[in-house]
């Protein structure tokens, strides 16, 4: 039996706010309060939630940038954080803010990443440029500093950067936020094609319900650090007795809030 690409079990994370006067740390609400889910290899899984629901915290833990307080995370069979060095070769990440050296050109930024991953710069560059062309970017823009480019163009370069390393697992944190409709459609079509062609497993966080419905085989709703519902888009609509995924999302996440389920105490083990 093939292991799932992502296995998250009872994941917990709580941040602390520094109290200046007393010079002690005050615990905040749980950012993740016992989240569990699995994503099969080659699937696209959508994680939807209101702002502050814990989506980015979850992506950061999977990206080896944050250590969880409890629970178990395995990516392609490798446990985090113990096997983070191995996991780093297997993941590509695109975050909501396209983080680049803005004074450097597209080509220079991509070559830097290729070298950072120990890749042959020439072949890595060819691959990245191919991805950019597929995303509708013109070659003449590759030598211009990134600060001269629109947010949409920067986000496409961010996707090319993540794919340049051929990751079997792609973590996308609101990759289409702020993009114009045409760019958004380009990115969505590309991701569909990528999953079909390469079998890449994709974890996608988004606020765009239509995007989630189009791209994701399964969707999870995250609210107050808890996974409050999970299933196919159709299943979630049925569960909430809603006509649209938007309505299902609002209904199921607000239900959690109305139930006073804001996790402030320690989550129980499941």
């Amino acid at each position: 039996m093939t292991l799932p690409a992502i296995q998250v079990c009872n994941l917990r994370k709580q941040f602390h706010r520094r109290r200046k006067r007393r010079r002690t740390d005050a615990p905040e609400a749980w950012a993740l309060a016992g989240v569990s889910f699995e994503v099969a290899r080659g699937d696209t899984y959508g994680l939807l939630g209101p702002n502050g629901s814990g989506k980015s915290t979850l992506i950061r833990i999977l990206s080896t940038l944050l250590v969880a307080d409890g629970g178990d995370v395995r990516l392609l069979g490798h446990r985090l954080p113990e096997e983070q060095a191995r996991v780093r070769w297997l993941i590509g990440r695109v975050s909501v803010d396209a983080a680049f050296y803005k004074k450097l050109s597209t080509r220079e930024n991509l070559l830097y990443t290729a070298l950072l991953y120990g890749l042959d710069p020439a072949s890595a560059e060819r691959k990245a440029m191919h991805v950019l062309e597929q995303l509708g970017m013109e070659q003449r823009t590759f030598s211009a500093p990134l600060e001269e480019m629109s947010r949409g163009m920067q986000q496409k370069i961010s996707i090319a950067r993540a794919l340049m390393i051929n990751p079997p697992l792609l973590l996308l944190d609101e990759p289409t936020t702020g993009l114009d409709p045409k760019s958004r459609r380009d990115v969505q079509a590309f991701l569909e094609d990528l999953r079909r062609r390469e079998g890449t497993t994709i974890l996608l966080t988004t606020h765009d319900m239509a995007e989630a419905e189009r791209l994701c085989a399964r969707i999870g709703f995250l609210a107050h650090g808890r996974l409050v519902a999970e299933g196919t888009a159709e299943g979630l609509r049925r569960q909430a007795s809603a006509a649209t995924l938007d309505d299902a999302f609002i209904g199921l996440t607000e239900e959690t809030a109305a139930a006073g389920d804001t996790p402030t105490g320690a989550p129980t083990d499941r």
């Binding site: 990206s63 060095a85 780093r88 990440r93 050296y101």
Partner: peptide
């Protein structure tokens, strides 16, 4: 300041 710290720290470089 550049906003690239997370990308450097998640790269597989010792």
């Amino acid at each position: 300041w550049e906003g690239t710290l997370e990308y450097t720290f998640m790269a597989p470089v010792s």
